[in-house]
Simulated scan of single mutants.
Amino acid sequence: MEGAVRTVRGSNMTLAQRAWNIRRKALLMGEVQGQGYIGQALGIADVLAASYFHALEYRAEDPEWEGRDRFLLSIGHYAIALYAVLMEAGILPEEELETYGMDDSRMPMSGMASYTPGMEITGGSLGHGLGIAVGMALGLKRKKNPALVYNLMSDGELGEGSTWEAAMSGAHHKLNNLICLVDFNNQQADGKSTEMLCSEPLEAKWEAFGWHCQRVDGNDLNAVVAAFDKARAVSEPKPRVIIFDTRMCKGVPFLESREITHFVRVEADEWSKALAVLEEGKPQ
């Protein structure tokens, strides 16, 4: 796999190794609290690896650098996944991993921008992230700042009217500095996303709203990298969206096979088993 062996950001590590490290860190944090949205973290790890070690411009030592690309986590309950990649990127110290979810931690269980370096917004009220991203992208354009805004949102947020209002606004303002990333894992709290409120045909809808749209396998690093490259290369004055079909709990087969994975139940003795299974699949 070309994407898997690609070395990134001046290190000798590949994207596949980065994604594996993100999954491992997420599992270790989940073990600290005995719970967490681990299914989403394992599923989105490849997209996060490509985001932070292929696509994004940032300075780990200066998370508020004005020239940085902004990465917005609309889905606040994915915070465990973002903390894992922020540690991998050197923005958060790995020593803080064991404080996850504790009262004085900079890593609360749901993401809060005021607590965590590198977290751009406080997400959680689903459907708000894209609207904030539109405002940020418009502001950067008016300041003539060439930075890009990436907004990671869930398939569940496609059922929120505010998402489509923001999509319409982004196209109206020709925000070619805005890239929306949709994690389509087909899981919500009450069941499959497609059974709660079906959003298909999804690509056609985004295109009808004036966006450049791609849909790829979010657990195929080749496809993920190519999608980022294509999105950034679009010459038309329009925002871009990439829909990533991901598998919940990717990398830990015995968790992948569970029927309910939105908040996957992991027994106390299963955290070490999950880490052991992940270790077996560690990329070289």
Rank of each mutant, 00 (worst) to 15 (best):
M248N: 12
A233Q: 12
A223K: 03
G218E: 08
V225Y: 00
F209D: 07
V224R: 01
S257W: 04
A231N: 07
G210H: 10
W206M: 11
S235M: 10
K230V: 14
A227I: 12
F228E: 12
M248I: 15
P253S: 04
R247L: 12
F228K: 03
P237V: 14
G251M: 01
R240M: 01
A233P: 04
M248W: 08
H212K: 10
L255D: 06
V252W: 02
D229T: 13
E256M: 15
L221P: 09
C213G: 04
E207R: 12
D245C: 08
K250P: 06
V225L: 03
V234K: 07
E259A: 13
V216C: 12
A233S: 14
R247D: 15
W211V: 11
N222H: 10
A226I: 11
T246I: 09
R240Q: 05
W206Q: 11
F228Q: 09
N222F: 00
F254N: 07
G218A: 12
R240F: 01
D245M: 03
N219R: 06
K238A: 14
I243G: 08
A223Q: 12
V241R: 09
P239S: 07
A231G: 11
V224P: 13
L255P: 13
V224K: 09
S257F: 07
I242L: 06
P239Y: 00
N222S: 09
N219M: 01
K230I: 15
V252S: 05
V241H: 07
P237Y: 02
G251C: 01
K230S: 14
I242M: 10
R247W: 03
K250N: 09
V216Y: 00
V252M: 01
D229H: 06
Q214R: 01
M248H: 12
F244R: 04
F209T: 06
V225H: 01
P237K: 01
V241P: 13
P237A: 04
P239G: 08
K238Y: 05
P239K: 12
R232G: 14
N219D: 13
A227V: 08
F228D: 10
F244V: 13
P239H: 03
R258L: 09
F228Y: 10
S235N: 04
R258D: 07
S235Q: 14
V241Y: 04
C249H: 06
R247K: 11
R215C: 05
D229C: 03
F209V: 00
C249W: 02
C213W: 05
R232Q: 15
A223W: 00
F244C: 04
R247H: 15
D220E: 07
M248C: 15
F228V: 14
V224S: 10
K238H: 13
I242Y: 04
M248L: 14
V241F: 01
K230N: 13
D220R: 05
R240V: 03
S257A: 13
